[in-house]
């Protein structure tokens, strides 16, 4: 349902993405792992056209797109098929939780307010914030804000949801509630690409793991394989650094 081919991106002299390709099937939960600077966030941002790739293409839901395009209209039509959950939530500060979720429907998709409200309430209830509909972001904790962000992404019924380190900005005690929400979505078959540092989450929830380093995909595959019998030396070193007490199934 989503295939990405040969993405290159440089910032000045810094060649961040050096030819990245991967596929995402419907219902897949893809975890993208890697150290800071490996390019994983940049990759995601290129797919949502927040950065303009230097080369590469993407096919989503049958639509073929050149990732280098600067066309606002094209970017927008792709964004209507996807949704993005940001590391620092990026909730609309001047709107309540309910309005945050409804805006993508009423303004971007010209839906009538009554239907939009129904969808928004359902989405917020699903993430556990049905009691906080008219709260402003400044009145919500980080975890709550991120869950509103997830509800906002759900409401527009995207083909795939991109998560850019959704829990990295959260206090440790709030990480669990957001991961729980994402887990729930995975169980329901939502197609997701999640850039994350949460290893156990990746191991337990993902259907596919991609390990990136230095702008390339070093290894990708099923989580049970990657986490127990990584083929590549770099992958092994990365995992060993993060999971020192991890037991390898032989």
């Amino acid at each position: 349902m989503l295939s990405v081919r040969d993405v290159h991106k440089s910032f000045g002299d810094n060649h961040v993405l050096k030819g990245v390709s991967f596929d995402v099937g419907e219902g897949d939960v893809v975890a993208v792992l890697g150290a800071s600077g490996s390019g994983k966030t940049t990759l995601l941002r290129c797919l949502e056209f927040f950065e303009h790739a230097d080369s590469g293409s993407m096919e989503i839901d049958g639509l073929q797109v050149d990732l280098t395009t600067h066309s606002a209209r094209l970017s927008r039509s792709i964004r209507q098929k996807t949704a993005f959950v940001f590391q620092n939530y990026n909730l609309f500060n001047n709107k309540t939780a309910l309005e945050n979720v409804m805006l993508g429907l009423t303004v971007a998709r010209k839906m009538d307010r009554a239907s939009a409200r129904k969808i928004a309430v359902a989405a917020l209830t699903k993430v556990g914030l049905g009691e906080r509909l008219d709260y402003y972001p400044c009145e919500l904790s980080g975890g709550q804000q991120q869950r509103v962000g997830i509800a906002r992404a759900l409401a527009v019924n995207p083909k795939v949801i991109f998560f850019d380190e959704p829990t990295s900005a959260l206090d440790p005690e709030l990480v669990g509630e957001v991961l729980g929400t994402i887990r729930q979505l995975a169980a329901e078959g939502t197609t997701m690409v999640v850039v994350t540092h949460e290893m156990s989450f990746a191991r337990d929830v993902a259907t596919k793991v991609i390990y990136m380093d230095g702008g390339v995909i070093v290894e990708q595959g099923r989580p049970d394989k990657i986490f127990t019998r990584p083929e590549n030396e770099r992958t092994r070193r990365f995992l060993a650094r993060y999971l020192q007490d991890f037991d390898y199934n032989i």
């Binding site: 949502e48 056209f49 927040f50 606002a72 970017s75 927008r76 964004r79 209507q80 996807t82 949704a83 993005f84 940001f86 990026n90 909730l91 609309f92 001047n94 709107k95 805006l103 993508g104 303004v107 971007a108 998709r109 906002r152 992404a153 527009v156």
Partner: peptide
């Protein structure tokens, strides 16, 4: 970017957000 991510256009995002 939050506005764009839910499918709003640039001008729409400017106006509402």
């Amino acid at each position: 970017e939050g506005g764009l991510s839910v499918g709003m256009s640039g001008p729409q995002t400017m106006w509402h957000i």
